[in-house]
Amino acid sequence: MLYIKCPYCGLRAQKEFSYGGDATVKRPNINEEVSSEDWDNFVYMRKSPRGKHIELWQHIAGCRQWIKVQRDTATHEIFQTAKVTEEIR
């Protein structure tokens, strides 16, 4: 079981979280024109890298905040977690 550091609640067991996928996918702005290619990329296309992956988790059994987690998809090592408003580099 992963051990995830919620930026609000501290280190908590994975079972308190639910996964939310690639955090680097940016939704096109609301009320702005978007090409269908860009839109399809947003809805369907994923890099799904082997290695460092910035992803979303929601602390559903805790503060209910969505958070960002930078994790290695091959080893599951977590390098960094952050609030969604913060950047992970």
């Binding site: 079981m1 992963l2 994975q14 079972k15 639910s18 996964y19 091959a74 080893t75």
Partner: peptide, 13 residues
């Protein structure tokens, strides 16, 4: 397991 993974191993939960 519920999160992107390339590990040919999983977790107990």
């Amino acid at each position: 397991d519920g999160y992107n993974s390339y590990a040919q191993r999983g977790n107990l939960p």
